[in-house]
């Protein structure tokens, strides 16, 4: 009997920070030395992080954090908005500090090798969750077009999103009205008409989710959305992180974001 990674797919491990750096004005990135965990992580999965700074200070419970960078031979990376107690403690970690992680957790994005092109619509730090999709798609020969929405240019993080994927990025900003839903709708309709994507992906904005859900349904395009929710255990035991999702029969049920998600079918998810 194999008692290794296959028998226990989720690890609780203390790993070493190899890079900790601010990104723009409000974001931060952490790279971790965790070769085994990085190799078995998939885009859209998450880790449950014990957010304690170098001195051990931080909130009692772990925080779920979607994977920003992962893969064979690469550091495990997280990119996050420094916002509350947890992310503040994480941003205080320095190279050489230890971080306790639990993961990889949840069901990630699914990519079909038959697809030729996908469209990603992300807002704010939602782009960190979708960033690994661009690289996975590129590796499968699937072209990626991305519409990224942000408050202002300093918050966009286009290089952090695209990595080496060569994704074609359209940036929209609040400041010039470019991120208004009406404008995004007009733009997406034009894209769907010009080069219909085989699938669409989104994360980070309720308004953009609703828009994409409506347009994808209208055009018969499959889609996936990554949902966020406050979590207790991260493993599916506490039933704290439920969201309303439509099941196959159309009935609205509570599903756990940690265990049944965090990636859900675009048409099954309900607005939050």
């Amino acid at each position: 009997m194999d008692l290794g990674a296959a028998a226990f797919p989720v690890a609780e491990a203390s790993v070493t920070v190899i890079e900790s750096a601010p990104v723009g004005r409000r974001y931060h990135r952490l790279l971790l030395d965790a070769p085994d965990l990085s190799a078995r992580s998939r885009p859209g999965q998450f880790f449950h992080l014990l957010c304690r700074d170098g001195g051990g200070a931080g909130p009692y419970l772990r925080r779920p954090m979607s994977i920003w960078r992962c893969g064979e031979g690469r550091p495990l990376g997280f990119l996050f908005h420094v916002k509350g107690k947890g992310t503040t403690a994480l941003a205080r970690l320095r190279e050489g500090d230890a971080l306790s992680v639990v993961g990889p957790l949840g069901h990630g994005f699914r990519l079909d090798p038959a697809w030729r092109r996908i469209l990603i619509v992300a807002r704010g730090v939602g782009l960190a969750t979708l960033a690994p999709v661009t690289e996975a798609a590129a590796a499968m020969g699937i072209a990626v077009e991305a519409v990224l929405s942000a408050r202002a240019e300093a918050d966009l993080m286009a290089p952090e999103f695209a990595g080496a994927s060569g994704a074609a990025i359209t940036a929209l900003f609040d400041a010039d009205g470019g991120s208004d839903v009406e404008h995004v709708e007009k733009m997406l309709r034009a894209r769907f008409a010009a080069a219909r994507p085989d699938a669409v992906f989104t994360c980070g904005s309720n308004r953009l989710f609703l828009l994409l859900q409506r347009l994808a349904a209208e055009h018969g395009i499959p889609g996936q959305v990554a949902l966020e929710q406050q979590m207790g255990c991260g493993l599916g035991m506490c039933f704290c992180c439920v969201r309303q999702v439509r099941d196959e029969t159309g009935k609205v049920v509570n599903l756990r974001v940690c265990a049944e998600g965090p990636v859900f079918d675009l048409q099954a998810a309900l607005a939050w």
């Binding site: 226990f8 989720v10 690890a11 255990c233 493993l235 599916g236 035991m237 506490c238």
Partner: peptide, 13 residues
Amino acid sequence: SGTFGPELAQVFD
């Protein structure tokens, strides 16, 4: 009770 489930078998025996 309430803090446990078969899901924990993903982590240990």
